[in-house]
């Protein structure tokens, strides 16, 4: 069977062991039978045991416990066009863009950051430049306006602050 379930089981099992070790270090509270370490310990044991069981099950071809992922993709496949190759570029940009968003949130500001992140994301997925730009800028400004004015969420204006946005 697929490697992923086996691997996940092993990782979760190891994580369980880690959780137990961390839980042992939590303090004991005087006057209480059980301290803050109890629940993490129980959860750790659970992860350790069931992670192992899951990994072992995954290796057994007799255990058809896992619902195949194919069912998920089925409606897409029925559309007639077969899936294209993975969009690694867009994926890398998505992760990098989100990391950049977190780092530059206050300095660059919401509108600037989001416009760039969304525009490049769309271009990498094959949307034409002008359309990607238009959608990115328009939706960002609209969301910004709604959240600032109606929902009173303090989104940062950043570099574009002088424009009165």
């Amino acid at each position: 069977m697929s490697k992923a379930p086996f691997l996940a089981g092993v990782i979760l099992s190891l994580a369980g062991a880690g959780v137990i070790m961390e839980a042992m270090r939590l303090p004991v509270i005087p006057g209480q039978t059980y301290g803050p370490g109890l629940f993490p310990t129980v959860i750790g044991i659970g992860l350790l045991v069931f992670g192992a069981v899951y990994a072992l099950n995954a290796r057994r071809p007799t255990e058809p416990a896992i619902v195949p992922e194919a069912e998920w993709a089925a409606p897409d496949a029925e559309e007639g066009s077969a899936p294209e190759r993975p969009f690694y570029g867009a994926l890398a940009w998505l992760i990098a863009g989100l990391a950049g968003t977190i780092l530059l949130w206050e300095t660059a500001g919401f509108v600037l950051l989001m416009s760039v992140v969304l525009m490049v994301f769309m271009i990498l997925l094959g949307v034409r430049l002008w359309l990607a730009g238009l959608v990115a800028v328009a939706s960002t400004i609209m969301v910004y306006a709604i959240f600032i004015r109606i929902l009173t969420v303090p989104l940062p204006s950043g570099l574009l602050a002088p424009l009165g946005l």
Partner: peptide, 18 residues
């Protein structure tokens, strides 16, 4: 420089945002 000078007096009118 223009941006800078524009943004300084804004501070004086606290509060300017939520």
């Amino acid at each position: 420089a223009a941006v800078f000078t524009l943004s300084t007096p804004v501070l004086a009118q606290y509060p300017e945002r939520p």
